[in-house]
Write a protein that binds this DNA or RNA. Structure first.
Lengths: 212, 212
DNA sequence: ACTATAGCATTGCAATGCTATGTATTCTGG
DNA sequence: CCAGAATACATAGCATTGCAATGCTATAGT
């Protein structure tokens, strides 16, 4: 018995916010709605305030990360696939450094947690395959190892994207992942070539460069 | 031929800001100077504005981290020492999570870089000893390996302190460091016991708990 | 001692996020 | 099909933010 919310307004605001983040314009209540035809109150009806908008932006970041993971082709080599996923993770963070910062800014809430878990699941699946195909010891926990891989990727890229280290630091990911997986039972030479292949595959730029 | 700046005011403001950060009070220009007897202009004369204050806070964070590293006793086992340093790094971040976030927030500037390098040097020294005493291969670059250790520590703790993961995730640091160092030439069993010893040493809480 | 220079307090301003009030719109119940 | 109610929406205003401008004051150098 009342007006219904127009979902288009919500997505419009989120995408405009993501765009402003990308071009490094400060996102304020008024600057966000300027030119959109909607008024400042829209932010409150759809997000409950600026905090809600940031939370929605965080989820959008994870959604885009999941979309990027989706484009990583899986192969018969799960170790290669894991490396490709981590490399894709790094690329995504470098392509959207400000959005990436928002993703890990401030406190996580329940919705954000689920979004993060969904992306983590990609890594878990690859590691489960690696274990079940005998590349890793039978007693490894894919989730624990996925978290460790995540920590490696996040540590590297957050020190590079918004931190003090130069971008070539990311190359360390190869040896770090290799060492991690060898420690979990993979054969040394085989592991190194798998990781290097997966890494190379996701790194060359060009794919959806102008996305935003 | 003019009034001289009182250094006490500067340190007073920094310590008050660090305290407000610790007790999670929002730091604003006015709330910072409230009750100190100094006026808002002091922030401009000593820091050039709020941005300068945040930069000073960032350096203060690295200074405290260096002080913590200083308390980590070095032993004859450089691998153990490295693990102890990384564990101390994690503890420091958990003890001052908001200050830690400030340290890696936004853009680094020249001064911050030097402060970060100074703390990184602790890791470099330990790794250089590890290499020179034959624990690691002769051709390893201590700086590169220090950066990788830093990435592991930073990745773990930033996903825990201000992120979605529970604190027991930090325990993964042991196996991650172990795998990293074994990959660089250390003996497997020896490495594991060294890392575990160093880890345990710095982890028990209590030391300077009520600081600041 | 005198003066120039820098610290310092006060005031005011634009911009921020948010709320209160009123209007308009659209879904629902009969 | 048409009232009525609940909700979206627009506008205006409020407290607070960081900061600049303006004088005033205190101190260091000659």
């Amino acid at each position: 018995m009342a007006r219904t919310k127009d979902p288009a307004v919500r997505t419009l605001l989120i995408e405009r916010a993501a765009h402003m983040l990308r071009v490094r314009e400060p996102i304020t209540l008024r600057s966000l709605v300027a030119g959109t035809g909607v008024s400042t109150m829209a932010v409150y009806t759809y997000f409950g305030g600026m905090d809600g908008l940031w939370k929605a932006l965080r989820q959008e970041g994870f959604t885009r990360l999941a979309a990027r993971f989706e484009t990583v082709p899986m192969s018969a080599d799960p170790v290669r696939d894991l490396a490709a996923l981590v490399a894709a993770y790094l690329r995504n963070a470098l392509d959207h450094p400000d959005l990436y910062r928002v993703m890990f800014d401030a406190s996580f809430e329940l919705e954000d947690l689920k979004a993060a878990d969904a992306t983590l699941e990609y890594l878990v699946q690859a590691l489960r395959r690696a274990r079940d195909t005998g590349r890793l010891r039978a007693e490894v926990d894919p989730l624990e190892l996925a978290i460790q891989s995540w920590a490696i990727g996040h540590g590297l890229v957050s020190l590079v994207a918004n931190g003090p280290l130069p971008s070539h630091t990311l190359d360390h990911g190869v040896s770090m992942l290799t060492a991690l997986l060898i420690g979990e039972g993979d054969q040394a030479d085989r592991c190194r070539t798998s990781v290097e292949r997966g890494w190379q595959q996701s790194l060359p730029p060009g794919e959806e460069a102008g996305a935003e």
